[in-house]
Write a protein that binds this DNA or RNA. Structure first.
Lengths: 216, 216
DNA sequence: AGTGCTCTAGGGGAAAACCCCGAGCCGACG
DNA sequence: CGTCGGCTCGGGGTTTTCCCCTAGAGCACT
């Protein structure tokens, strides 16, 4: 690739001007916009390689642009640019489809490097941010691990766990009994133990308890 | 930082040798291991800046090493190295705490670059992989968006949605009635409508339906 | 030999959930 | 103005859940 074709979105003229001068000659700036609607239209029209997108803007901010772009131009990579390094902002914009996130205190050469890397399909984050993103990413998984050593779950006997699983899926006592080839009364007995041990009062709470721990 | 201190984990001597020669002089290789247990011990002992970790190994592979390391040395960054670019492998190792993932067909200079970037706290992925990772990351959020326009959910009246939410949380009819200041019979009536419209047969399925759509 | 836990199972009963019926009130829409 | 849909209730019924109790068989540990 010769020079990446870059589109600038930021509601502050001063910032855009600063970026232009920092990147002058090293990239091909194919357009600019200072608000959400115009940005979306022009991006769809000019199809740049990389969009430099400010996160905080009136009318929904960068996330609004990403939503509007949706999947309509997957070959356009978006590099989010922000003064904030708050975890929520980062997560939100990544969820919306950005391929990178850098803060505005980045140096000119580093920004240039980031643009080239995003253009190449790489994921780019400021060092401090990489931590946030990957930590958040591994969170859901972490809950699962925790469940394995869940002290409450250890209280249950194998049979009780087996019954719990079926009950949580919405099986009636009779269904569970048929499935496990035992009497409905026995199922009842197991459920009773489970509820007592987990300090729950009915099977609906049980369902939620199980689904929170991804036991289904 | 002068030269990053790098630790090599791979069960193939040949690979380690190749990496050593590629990186010779550019990084400080402070140790090697060819299996999980030894790797964990030596990493904890030598505290390198970066661990180059093979994903596929006997006795649990790279994921096992990451789990064992757990949070015991957060300042050690792990760069996963693998022949595979299968999404599951990538996701698993990221969830376990790796800060980067590159495939073994990477060039020497690129690997060197990746190591420096990981050492600096950056997140590094092969271009093709960045897509996988970020896509997977935005998945859970995407489900939420989809729910807003869920055709089934549109069938329900506002009151029905309100009742649905409470029921799904495990409230009894009486509780819901108290909460909404209506008769239990009315709640029953709404639940009946909801079940009919969503083609479900009982409140347990309803709970699951709601929790799948993150409506709690 | 006794103790304790698990799995099994039943009786009996209160409460909740679910279903089918009808019915009144109100606002929107043609 | 009539009709339709949403919201509000009730009666009366079956099924399911949940709790109380008892109790035997098997197994492990002391």
């Amino acid at each position: 690739m010769s020079q990446p074709r870059v589109f600038l979105v930021d509601d502050h003229e001063l910032i855009r001007s600063g970026i232009r001068s920092e990147l002058a000659g090293a990239v091909d700036i194919v357009g600019e916009a200072d608000e959400v609607e115009a940005a979306v239209e022009m991006i769809l029209e000019r199809n740049p390689d990389v969009v430099l997108l400010d996160v905080h803007m009136p009318a929904g901010g960068g996330v609004a642009v990403l939503r509007a772009l949706n999947g309509r131009c997957p070959e356009v990579r978006v590099l989010a640019l922000s003064v904030s390094d708050a975890a929520e902002d980062v997560i939100a914009v990544i969820r919306a489809g950005a391929r990178g996130y850098v803060t505005k205190n980045i140096s000119g050469p580093d920004l240039l490097d980031a643009i080239y890397r995003v253009a190449a399909g790489d994921a780019v984050f400021s060092p401090r941010l990489a931590g946030f993103v990957l930590d958040a990413f591994s969170l859901e998984g972490a809950q699962l691990e925790a469940a394995d050593v869940d002290p409450d779950l250890d209280l249950l006997t194998p049979r009780e766990r087996q019954v719990l699983r079926l009950i949580a899926r919405g099986y009636s006592y009779r269904d569970v009994a048929t499935e496990l080839v035992i009497s409905p009364k026995t199922v009842e007995s197991h459920v009773s133990s489970v509820l007592r041990k987990l300090q729950l009062s009915n099977r609906h709470q049980l369902s939620n308890w199980a689904s929170e721990r991804h036991l289904l």
